[in-house]
Design a protein around this nucleic acid. Structure first.
Ligand SMILES: NC(=O)c1ccc[n+]([C@@H]2O[C@H](COP(=O)([O-])OP(=O)(O)OC[C@H]3O[C@@H](n4cnc5c(N)ncnc54)[C@H](O)[C@@H]3O)[C@@H](O)[C@H]2O)c1
Ligand SMILES: NC(=O)c1ccc[n+]([C@@H]2O[C@H](COP(=O)([O-])OP(=O)(O)OC[C@H]3O[C@@H](n4cnc5c(N)ncnc54)[C@H](O)[C@@H]3O)[C@@H](O)[C@H]2O)c1
Lengths: 212, 212
DNA sequence: ATACAATTGTGAAAATAATCACGACTTATT
DNA sequence: AATAAGTCGTGATTATTTTCACAATTGTAT
């Protein structure tokens, strides 16, 4: 909603900054410089200052940033006070791992429900999250805006269409399938096999030295 | 080693192209245009042509690309005929999911061994991969060049130092910790909480319409 | 043969992102 | 009070990535 002039590259780093600021705060640190933060998050300090500057003047020259103030600012900016409900589809290896993980720790997101096609899984719960049958998706989803997709690739398109029809806004897609959605839905792909393979490619074809 | 003029953005897409070309080949398709491929992988067709062009003229004007030829080319380029051995550290929720997954399917990478600190896990195997005690890391790793890190964040730095000392080349880091390594080691961070949170941020702050 | 439709490869332009470098200001020290 | 050291915010620059747009070429149909 607000200002959408913030570069995407910046937006992707915000949750990272937020997490490290939280760490600093818990450590009792009162202030932090872009240089210190840079060493912690491995992002160039000029990039950090530039990122912050899109939100105005958050720091003080010669001093740095007040941890508590900055944390509070990012809490608001990242809507940390508002819970985002998430549904997970496919409670296999990967889905189960996510259900056991507490995304709430540094996060305003919570997996509220899971779906699976396997009747052995339906009716149980994992990590306190109830598992419903995928046939009941439309009945149970109840306005949840974000879905994590961890079904087999072959099932990805079908489920996606149903998620779109039911009005989902965002999908975090872990399947190797590149799903098709209307422009009103945002998809982030996390392709673990590609990540592993591209790491290997970089190792073999790039001089081991600079950047990450 | 070879030409390192290939842009990083391009290099990251290569495994994706490779996988979809494999799919097409299995479907018996003989040729493909950048437009078709674009619809499948959701990358602009001009970008695909540009990516391919870094490797020379792989296609034919007015025709497109020969699937088998292109596949063979990428197989060589991505060193698909050479196995890359991988070690996984931390056989918890996420680590276990990866051990159950067959990265070999479209891939030249294989998890050969896993390590954990929990004596209940040591000595067993998951998905056919033996689990050793983390104390035996140096003894067992045997020149493996790539590690997947799925330990608790607090253990990340210690393990990383040991991996570096033992001569690792690349680390796929799933912990929220931003680990420190010398320039000779490449780290790719996959930060699932950040991915989820940044998706939520985009949904709330960006007009639902263009790009992905 | 010829015409037509399809599609590449790429120069040029545009968009996006990262980095440099410095003036202005803050805090700490003497 | 003056000085020194530290640090931000940002204009300018550079680097990287994406996209446009079209001449050149190919395959197909008549
Ligand atoms: N596990 C990994 O390490 C890994 C790595 C890379 C990619 N992936 C991808 O992530 C996805 C999930 O992987 P996984 O290892 O958890 O697979 P999995 O087979 O363990 O789990 C898939 C789950 O989805 C359920 N399912 C199947 N069809 C369904 C449907 N139509 N509706 C609802 N649920 C359905 C199955 O019952 C199962 O519980 C796959 O697409 C896989 O390719 C996984
Ligand atoms: N599970 C998720 O969905 C998820 C999501 C986001 C991030 N992460 C991150 O991924 C990492 C792993 O998550 P998880 O859910 O699998 O955690 P987990 O606690 O289930 O597993 C961690 C494993 O590491 C082992 N371990 C602990 N200390 C060790 C050491 N020094 N050497 C070797 N092994 C050691 C533990 O015995 C355990 O088996 C964590 O850093 C977590 O923050 C996980």
């Amino acid at each position: 909603m607000e200002q959408n002039k913030i570069p995407q590259a910046t937006a992707k780093r915000l949750p990272l900054y937020y997490r490290f600021l939280n760490n600093l705060h818990h450590q009792g640190k009162l202030r932090v410089s872009s240089k210190e933060l840079s060493e912690a998050v491995k992002v160039d300090s000029a990039t950090i200052r530039r990122d912050f500057s899109y939100f105005g003047a958050l720091g003080k020259k010669g001093y740095g940033y007040n941890v508590e103030y900055l944390l509070g600012f990012f809490r608001k900016t990242l809507d940390q006070d508002e819970l985002t409900e998430v549904a997970l589809i496919g409670t296999g290896n990967l889905g189960t791992a996510f259900l056991h993980y507490n995304f709430m720790k540094n996060n305003n997101t919570k997996i509220m429900m899971a779906f699976d096609a396997n009747p052995d899984k339906v009716g149980k719960d994992i990590g306190g999250v109830p598992i419903y049958h995928i046939d009941d998706l439309e009945k149970k989803i109840n306005g949840v805006q974000v879905a994590i997709l961890t079904v087999p690739a072959a099932a990805a398109d079908g489920i996606t269409n149903r998620l779109v029809d039911v009005g989902i806004s965002g999908i975090l897609n872990f399947t190797p399938a590149r799903i098709t959605v209307p422009d009103s839905v945002r998809v982030h792909h996390i392709d673990l096999a590609v990540e592993l393979q591209s790491l290997v490619y970089f190792l073999k074809h790039y001089p081991l030295d600079t950047e990450e």
